[in-house]
Design a protein around this nucleic acid. Sequence first.
DNA 1: CGGGATCCTTGACGATACTG
DNA 2: CAGTATCGTCAAGGATCCCG
Lengths: 224, 224
Amino acid sequence: MLGYGQACPVSLGAEVFGERWTPLILRELAKGWHRFNEIQAGIPRMSQSVLVKRLRWLERNGVLERRAGGYHLTQAGLELWEVAERLGAWSQRWLEPKPADFDPYLVMRWIHLHLRREALPQRRAVVRFDFPRRHKSYWLVLEVGDPDLCLVDHGFQIDLVVTADVEALTLVYLGRQSLDSALSNGSIELEGPREMVSRFPHWFGLSGFAKYAIRRPPELALAK
Amino acid sequence: MLGYGQACPVSLGAEVFGERWTPLILRELAKGWHRFNEIQAGIPRMSQSVLVKRLRWLERNGVLERRAGGYHLTQAGLELWEVAERLGAWSQRWLEPKPADFDPYLVMRWIHLHLRREALPQRRAVVRFDFPRRHKSYWLVLEVGDPDLCLVDHGFQIDLVVTADVEALTLVYLGRQSLDSALSNGSIELEGPREMVSRFPHWFGLSGFAKYAIRRPPELALAK
DNA sequence: CGGGATCCTTGACGATACTG
DNA sequence: CAGTATCGTCAAGGATCCCG
């Protein structure tokens, strides 16, 4: 992308922040992903060649640096991430996700990352998330030390089954819909021992942007 | 631009804010320009067709609305402009304008808009800004009611002549360099009656982003 | 794993002309 | 003044293959 040709702070900032994919790359770095393939896994629709180019561009502009084989935000990068957070807060107030935006893998990745460690079961528990409409399942291995997300069945005994619409699970994670409403209209179902079911809301952590969300009734939660 | 395919607040916001030219359009609207041609005049390198498309897209996303033949930011738009302001503040701290970014017309436009009305001379005064290296001149007609910027000579009597490098004048306007340093190294010169010269710093208003600037010595003020 | 190099497509953009 | 319509260009990006 060519620059804007203006010595204006807004346009200069936009030459860095406004490049396609850049805010998402900042997000991955801020969430604690540092390896090339980790970052790419969080942004599946961006090609590697573009990721390479963006990382180089951000490095040249002092937003990130390479240390020990990984990419890390600099002080400037941390402050730019704060701008991205403000943008996210704005979008929680004023925008609605579109149907095409919901992705079962991504929401699982976010849920995995935001597990409330302090509320995980003391002994290992395996939770299977089923997305029947997408014909996809994921396994979340809850362990206090190192919870894990699996895309294939390792044959573990299942302690809890979460059956959900991707849309509903995502909106709950984002704080745009209450878990209770999703449970009561059946868009999310929990099956397992009473103890596991009742503890689900404790270890299921919401997005950091949930506090900015405008809670909507379920039928309006998804933009047409 | 296609969307990001992620129901993440950051990526949703980036689909609106991250489109090319969009932050600059917000800036023009926030500065009080409302007509199509006014907005375009502030972003000379954007073609009309792109401006039309962006305005429609921002309207569809509730950022602006058309009223009385002009474009106006909505409440959502005002809050999005705050995000752009944060980005501008970030860039004042961490980025340097490039040589190609300096534009005599744009800086005159900004100076005109940011004139400190309360400090203007009581009677009309005409200031000619000469940019000898660019072979350009502009006339600023200081009138308390309605100061005017002219691109051609109307034959007025000139009360003050400002001879400047575009770079220096811009950096001073942005708060990145002190007026005194520019005057003392000759990159800005003032010629006229003592009274007019001494009053110049009073009606010359700085950018709203000046308070975030990191003041640098003149020889470092312009990135190589 | 972390890219580099290539090819190829698409669509974003600039320029121009025209219009109510 | 504020666009619409059309066309040509070019570069961004996706896909693929390869490599240390």
